[in-house]
Design a protein around this nucleic acid. Sequence first.
DNA 1: GAATTGGCTTTCGCCTACAGTCTACGGCGC
DNA 2: GCGCCGTAGACTGTAGGCGAAAGCCAATTC
Lengths: 228, 228
Amino acid sequence: MLSTTGLPQGAVPKLERPGPLRDRVYEALLELITTRALQPGQHLVESELAGHLGVSRQPVREALQRLSTEGWVDLRPAQGAFVHEPTEEEADQLLTVRTLLEAEAARLAAANAGSAAIAALEELCAEGERAVAADDVDGAVATNARLHAKIMELAGNKVLAELAAQVDRRVRWYYTPVARQRGRQSWIEHRELIAAIADRDEQRAIEAMRTHTEQTRKMYHERGNQPR
Amino acid sequence: MLSTTGLPQGAVPKLERPGPLRDRVYEALLELITTRALQPGQHLVESELAGHLGVSRQPVREALQRLSTEGWVDLRPAQGAFVHEPTEEEADQLLTVRTLLEAEAARLAAANAGSAAIAALEELCAEGERAVAADDVDGAVATNARLHAKIMELAGNKVLAELAAQVDRRVRWYYTPVARQRGRQSWIEHRELIAAIADRDEQRAIEAMRTHTEQTRKMYHERGNQPR
DNA sequence: GAATTGGCTTTCGCCTACAGTCTACGGCGC
DNA sequence: GCGCCGTAGACTGTAGGCGAAAGCCAATTC
């Protein structure tokens, strides 16, 4: 259906609206936490954050609530919000869950993927390999995220995707030091994973994704890196 | 370390404090939603709820936020909160995820369980069977929840437990009509599951839990019950 | 007669203000 | 000198209020 105005459908910039303030506060705080600007264990005072961001306490409170349910901060009653302190045990458990979710996604992707989708995956993989070759660490990490997201999209399970997205971000937070060093090997494993999906081999896809994430866990423990 | 007061550690009633109001509002709303007192798609007006519960709008807002992140209500910007409307597709995906999480829990439980824990499981199972025999549907459902919770506890993965708890509650909401009719068969499957855990047979535990949850899915589709 | 536009009502989003509670520090007694 | 109590400060929890956006209905115009 065409609009009667004759305006092209997609070209209108949709009048970018600032969106709810609480969401922007949420994103800002999440950024501050993931970048370690707010350190684990730190006490987050509502009025401070509010003043610093130039808003009232209310949006800050709502953002903190949401961060709390997603495990980024701990909300002690009548005492306030504290940036969550990851323990070694928790990091391990989180990685276990991630392995589980991603493996299932890989299986579903292998079951559903069309040829166009596989081509897209291979393109992403090539892009990542190029980034690694050029020593573009940030680019490689970003492409990695996009690849995993694409696989999750192919799985076609929104509930799974939502859970995995949450888990993934926290895993990235815990393991950033490791992830940055793991570039090259990681993309070799990606190749195998994509090959399995292309062959519609569900079991092999599961195995590939498992070894891929398990590899990360091993790396983490070998380096003896304290997550705190 | 003993307390210097000489009081036994757990016996002190901890001076029951009402706890944050938002949490109680959250629980109240969750109760209203799960019991269908608030129907799917219904528009939840903050001031109405606040008046009805005898509190201000703020705690209601915070409770709605939390309900939103957990998928119980949809929060449309500048328009308010609406009770989430489950679609058939979503119910199916949710059940897939639940199967995944519970199966992993069963595997971990089989790997970790001590003899005392197994005895506890069998006691719960017996309790459930008694409830079924007495046609105590509510008791059977409650015991069912406790059994699954116990297995999750034995798995010893808190992250997994948290995710599973969320998914579980929503599954129960979608499938309550089915669950109430599935009592007897369900507890037969539980027996097999516990036997597998008792034998420390991880693979068999996974399979038992899978067929258990998959059975629920089949039941659901056979009855052609629209989740809406 | 149908589409549009203007105003009106409802409800949300955010801010400000007050009361309750926890923590920390200083004075007092032992 | 050491430990306890009291008080003050700070922060959170809750309430109420104002501005603004979205939706609805009716009047108007083509």
